[in-house]
């Protein structure tokens, strides 16, 4: 390595190190706060005076009002269901727009694209009263329906991916007498692992981070809250002093599975994001 290269290399590593520290400080701060013994959102010292594991323990023992385990199960249930439904619906729609040609295709694609632009929470009162009229208010099923109901709008990444699968594969299968139904399940889907994973991750994560729809649908029913809404309640004005450190602990617990998921499925994520773009 030449001298100049060495200098550049050291410089770049230093910059990266500084940047990654900047990126990790909030994460570190979160973990630190989750072990802090003093209550409250603010302390007069940066470093906690004492550490404790109680914030974590409290989440699982003091469940009378803030039932974290229950919220976690609710969220997991909703996330798994809506992940499955959303993935299937999205792939179906993407496949239709990518492979099948019919009269209203272009119009439908544009309408779907446009509908996705409407601020989602504008429709929440309407959705709440609709759910209520069919007896689904304050149920997890309503949440699943809300999260997967818009699946038809997020087709374009998956469609971009399907567009890159050579159509000759379809044609060969059609010559063998396969119907479109068979082609979808037997040819397209097995070739689309990255995009299936990508769609599934996104659908899986949505229920963990949304707090708006949950508060509209669940209202005062604490037991049916999901983690995000629950955590949000922990830090509202009346509770923040008492529960801030527990909130941090809960956030750490929620983040761990997502970190693992991301690290494990990183490559699918990248190929998903670039699928629609990579062919220009």
């Amino acid at each position: 390595m030449s001298n100049r290269n060495k200098k550049i290399s050291i410089l770049m590593h230093t910059v990266l190190a500084i940047l990654s520290v900047l990126w990790l400080i909030p994460v570190f701060w979160l973990v630190l706060s989750s072990f802090r013994k003093e209550k409250g959102a603010y302390t007069s010292t940066l470093w906690p005076k004492a550490f404790t594991f109680d914030n974590y323990v409290k989440l699982f023992t003091d469940t009378r009002l803030f039932n974290f385990p229950k919220w976690f199960c609710n969220t997991l249930f909703v996330a798994v269901c809506s992940c499955i439904i959303t993935t299937i619906l999205t792939l179906m729609v993407a496949y239709v727009y990518s492979r099948l040609r019919f009269k209203s295709r272009k119009a439908l694609m544009n309408i779907s694209l446009v509908l996705g632009m409407f601020p989602g929470f504008m429709s929440m009162i309407a959705i709440y009263h609709f759910m209520k009229s069919i007896g689904l208010d304050q149920t997890l099923l309503a949440l699943i329906l809300v999260y997967s109901g818009g699946a038809a709008l997020n087709y374009y990444i998956a469609k971009g991916f399907f567009d890159t699968i050579p159509i000759s594969l379809d044609e060969a299968a059609r010559l063998d007498g396969a119907s479109r139904h068979v082609i979808f399940w037997k040819i397209i889907l097995p070739n689309s692992k990255p995009i299936v994973v990508n769609t599934a991750i996104n659908a899986f994560i949505a229920p963990w981070v949304d707090f708006i729809f949950v508060s509209v649908i669940m209202k005062d029913n604490y037991d049916k809250y999901t983690v995000a809404k629950g955590l949000f309640t922990m830090v509202d004005k009346a509770n923040i002093f008492e529960y801030y450190t527990s909130f941090c602990a809960a956030a750490v617990l929620v983040s761990i599975p997502i970190v693992l998921l991301f690290i494990k499925l990183q490559k699918y994520y990248v190929s998903g994001v670039t699928a629609g773009a990579s062919k220009g």
Binding site: L30, W208, V209, A228, A251, I256, F262
Partner: peptide, 9 residues
């Protein structure tokens, strides 16, 4: 890693 923490947190 920072992506994994829910945004609202």
């Amino acid at each position: 890693i920072s992506v994994a923490i829910p945004q609202f947190v």
